[in-house]
Amino acid sequence: MGDMNEGGSTKKFLYLNRKAPYGTVYALESLEVVLIAAAFEQDVSLAFIDDGVYQIIQGQDTTGIGMKNFSPTFNALGDYDINKLYVEKESLDERGLTEDDLMPLVYEDEDDDWAEKPSIRVVSRAEMADLMQDQDVILSF
């Protein structure tokens, strides 16, 4: 990954999250990669489709299954300048979920006197497809 920033050019990276948390390790692995790769200061977006929408659902409590609840870490993404989290509406609908069931993730906008703004953008499947077309690199988890 050393030449990711070669020539100072910024590339558009999309992390595609399709799995629910805890049942498999994909969700946690994705988040760790996102945090590490944040050091490269690229244009990063996160997409949550299919069961991936469960990664950012409110009220996760893992005490009963003896695993670490990593959902609070999504609140730190704003500190890492990652503030574009796209969630697909059709995926929410199919699962009986709405935007209100998601964590209210925000970031502080440096260019707007550190005003708190929402990081989550609910988009249609068609908009998500367009977003994918618009990337340089797509990493799937």
């Binding site: 629910a20 948390p21 805890y22 469960y54 659902i57 409110q58 009220g59 996760q60 409590d61 893992t62 005490t63 009963g64 299954i65 695993m67 609840n69 069931d101």
Partner: peptide
């Protein structure tokens, strides 16, 4: 299973 439900909100 309640514990798995809670983990997934």
């Amino acid at each position: 299973l309640g514990a798995d439900m809670a983990a997934r909100g």
